[in-house]
């Protein structure tokens, strides 16, 4: 089900914050259409890793090739590349001074130079896709957390990105709103989008992921298909982690 050439290929990435070694020799590849779920205890480098994938953080050594182009801190191509890689944040990060519709159209209009009419048409299509077409003219603060996160997903979709990164998209949500966001993400997965998701929602992972990644202390400890990952993980640390979060 995966192509031969990976769309994201990280080779031996290392990343430091001052003296803190955040990523240790991380290698990982993501193929077009793949759904990768990354989990692990907090501080294990999951967020750092996916933030490297769209240039919000920079690796200090190693190679990172995205869509055939090698990227690093001083690469000129990074802005063009960011338009291909969408990101959904834990804290939504919607633009509070713009309406929902404006949040969705500002990227296509200013970055892709698409006409307002066309951008709005696309925006309404994706608002439909995330099931909140009626909220187009409201401001983000007037929406619930779950609705805001769905707008954030739609904002990324409006850029017609080829890869979507999710950085703990449901961690800041009230429990009753988690499912409406996960449902949208499941539907998105069904369209064939390439997704890299950092999450602790194991139900979602079981349903959507074709590859599970477990990270600890800045290292990738285990990469396996969900069937093996949940029933018979290779590493002891992964088994312990799963026991802890699946207990309840």
């Amino acid at each position: 089900m995966t192509d031969a050439t990976p769309i994201i290929e990280a080779t031996n990435l290392d990343k430091f914050y001052g003296t803190f070694h955040a990523l240790k020799d991380v290698s990982l590849s993501v193929h077009p259409g793949q759904k990768l779920v990354i989990c692990g205890p907090s501080g294990s480098g999951k967020s750092t890793l996916i933030r490297c994938f769209n240039g919000l953080e920079w690796h200090n050594s190693g190679r990172l090739v995205i869509d055939g182009t090698e990227v690093h801190e001083h690469a000129k191509e990074i802005r063009a590349l960011r338009q291909e890689v969408g990101m959904v944040f834990q804290q939504f990060n919607l633009f509070p001074h713009l309406t929902v519709l404006e949040n969705l159209t500002i990227g296509p209009m200013k970055v892709r130079k698409i006409s307002r009419a066309q951008a709005e048409e696309t925006a309404r299509k994706y608002l439909d896709r995330v099931h909140i077409p009626e909220q187009a003219d409201k401001y983000p603060a007037q929406l619930s957390g779950g609705q805001q996160q769905r707008v954030a997903i739609a904002r990324s979709l409006c850029m017609e990105t080829r890869i979507m990164l999710f950085d703990e998209p449901t961690s800041a949500l009230d429990p009753e709103m988690i499912n409406e966001v996960l449902d949208v993400m499941v539907e998105l997965a069904e369209t064939g989008m390439t997704m890299v998701v950092v999450t602790h929602e194991m139900g979602f992972a079981r349903k959507v992921a074709d590859t599970m990644v477990f990270m600890e202390d800045g290292q990738i400890v285990e990469v396996s298909p969900p069937e093996t990952f949940f029933t018979n993980p290779e590493s002891e640390r992964c088994r312990l982690f799963l026991d802890q979060i699946l207990e309840h």
């Binding site: 919000l56 802005r79 944040f89 200013k110 970055v111 990324s156």
Partner: peptide, 22 residues
Amino acid sequence: DRGQWEAAKSIGMSPGQTYRYI
């Protein structure tokens, strides 16, 4: 909020566009 910079970056805005629109 710093997240506003990150969100603007992640939709491909340049620093100038980020200042002006966000």
